[in-house]
Amino acid sequence: MTRELTTQEQFDAFADEVARELGTHCRTVELIDYDGGLGRLIITGDGRALRLCQPDDRHPDSLKIHAALPDGNKMIAPSIGVTARTARHVAREITRRLYPLHTEAARQAAELAAKQEAEESDRTAFARSSGLLARILDTARPGHRRLVCSVSAAPETLVAVLRADSDPDGASQLDEAEAVEFTTILALGLASGSPGGLVIRTAAPSSPDQVYGWRLRTGDFEPLTAGEIFDAYCTNADSGDLVPPESDVDYCVPPDLGPDATPSTHRR
């Protein structure tokens, strides 16, 4: 025999019974965002929000129960249909059928949210990387320019080289494949927080080469001092021994890239 649920008062009392059957820490509250008929919200002891609804008053014993997922996810909340025989029967169906669906849906929702967050982080890092590269080229003097970016990543250090010579109009001539690889590795260092660095060497007629760079550390892009870039170029990376500095090379502080690294147009 099913319960007669034709008024909100009767429905609320039935929802209270279902909540008691589900556990001592369950409670019910008003379902304020439902206008499809009788409804009540059950909050379980472990934080689940169950929407107990009567979608069709022509069938007052047919209930629909939705288990809510976190706000902002794009998955459909799991639900089951159940007959209002007794509160114990409804609670049993929630435990037997709805809880497993909700657990799986919540797991998938968490994975989807993590994936979306990672994708957004990657997009942000790539945009920042592109902007930094554009500003570096904008502030570098014209001539022959060679950039090297390295990022420490398991199982080996990633290195990208970019040649960005400027034409007589001052625009950078970039190889598409090199530029994408360079920007991607720089973005990886920014997004992951892995240690690394970026060094640029410029050469122009009748003047010493200029060498300067930045370090990558915990996602920050910090300029190297002239002493640091000198030490990096004059130290053997394998043995740690000092090596003589090159002649006609100016180890210098990098130019100010400004507060924002906004992309600009460069020829590829």
Rank of each mutant, 00 (worst) to 15 (best):
A160T: 08
R27P: 03
A134H: 03
A87T: 00
Y212E: 01
D231G: 12
A179Y: 14
V159H: 13
D167Y: 08
Q173T: 02
I42V: 06
A177N: 11
A226Q: 12
C252L: 05
G197P: 02
R201T: 11
G45E: 07
L190K: 00
T225N: 11
I185C: 03
T44R: 03
I80E: 06
N236D: 15
A19S: 00
T218F: 15
E104R: 07
V211W: 07
R145T: 05
V148A: 09
R51G: 12
C149S: 06
A87F: 06
A106H: 05
G37H: 10
F126I: 13
L112A: 14
P60H: 15
D260E: 15
T202C: 07
G197T: 02
R268I: 10
P78Q: 03
V180A: 15
L132M: 04
A179L: 13
R51T: 12
P259I: 00
P259T: 04
Q173C: 05
L224A: 09
V90S: 06
T265M: 12
A261Q: 06
V148K: 09
L174M: 02
R92P: 02
G131I: 00
I32M: 14
A110G: 00
E178H: 07
P205D: 10
E176Y: 10
G37N: 11
E111M: 13
H144P: 04
A113S: 09
C53N: 14
P255G: 03
D57F: 14
I136T: 04
L41S: 12
R85I: 10
R97I: 06
I229E: 09
A15L: 02
R268K: 10
N73D: 09
L174F: 05
L69A: 08
D33A: 08
G213F: 01
R96G: 08
A13V: 04
A191L: 05
V151Q: 05
C252R: 06
G72Y: 01
V29F: 06
F182N: 03
D250I: 05
L137I: 07
A105S: 01
F221W: 05
L101T: 00
G131K: 02
G193I: 01
P60V: 11
A114S: 11
T139V: 11
T225S: 15
D220C: 13
W214Q: 07
R58G: 15
E181G: 14
G258P: 05
V161M: 12
G81T: 10
R92W: 09
R48V: 04
R267D: 12
D33Q: 05
D33V: 07
A91C: 00
T24L: 03
R146E: 11
G36R: 10
